[in-house]
Simulated scan of single mutants.
Amino acid sequence: MTMDVTIYHNPECGTSRNTLAMIRNTSIEPTIIEYLKNPPSREQLVRMIADAGLSIREAIREKGTPYAELGLDNPGLTDDQLLDAMLKDPILINRPFVITTMGTRLARPSEVVLDILPDTHKGPFTKEDGEQVLDAQGKRLV
């Protein structure tokens, strides 16, 4: 099966690497956008977040970012202010976002990506931390 798949990827992130590997395990080579180097436009970011069923605040990454220093935990901030911060400093965009014809997901945990991929897995899949996600027949375990 051929399918257009795009991943907003950070190669330094284990969750992002696992997600990319699960996509490839379906024999699909996705379009990879290293979002720290090539961040989405405001319109793309808003669409991805909405299509994933998330609020703007749910799409912000706190860990390993200037989230606290920037005061982004202030509940009085508007969505526009949060988006401005995310676009100014893309490390604040949680990852990986994956877009397919079957939907859009923030793949946290990484196996969430399986919800929007065809069931064409090439066999077992084990995440970097040793957790097995797919069995020898490519069937989902988690």
Rank of each mutant, 00 (worst) to 15 (best):
A21C: 09
V142S: 12
M22W: 04
P11Q: 06
I60C: 11
A107F: 07
A136G: 13
T101N: 12
A136V: 15
A107G: 09
L20W: 01
S16D: 04
M22Q: 00
N18P: 06
T78N: 04
P90T: 02
L134D: 00
I56Y: 04
P11T: 02
K122R: 12
M22N: 02
V112K: 15
L141K: 10
Y67A: 00
T104C: 09
A85V: 03
G53Q: 04
M1G: 14
E34H: 12
K139Q: 14
A85E: 00
K88G: 09
I56R: 06
L54C: 02
E43W: 13
L54D: 01
M1W: 12
S27K: 13
F97I: 01
P40Q: 09
T31I: 15
V98T: 01
D80L: 08
P30N: 10
V112E: 14
L36N: 03
L83S: 09
K127M: 09
D119N: 15
D80K: 11
Y67I: 00
P39V: 02
L114I: 04
L106S: 01
D129Q: 10
E62Y: 14
Y67F: 00
S110M: 06
K139M: 13
N25R: 11
G76N: 11
N94C: 08
G76Q: 11
R108A: 05
P109K: 13
A52M: 03
V5P: 06
E111Y: 10
R42D: 03
L92Y: 01
R140G: 04
T78P: 00
T2V: 14
I60T: 10
T104S: 10
H121Q: 11
A21I: 06
I60P: 03
F97P: 01
Q137H: 13
N18I: 04
I49R: 02
P30R: 05
R140S: 03
K63A: 12
I49H: 02
Q132F: 12
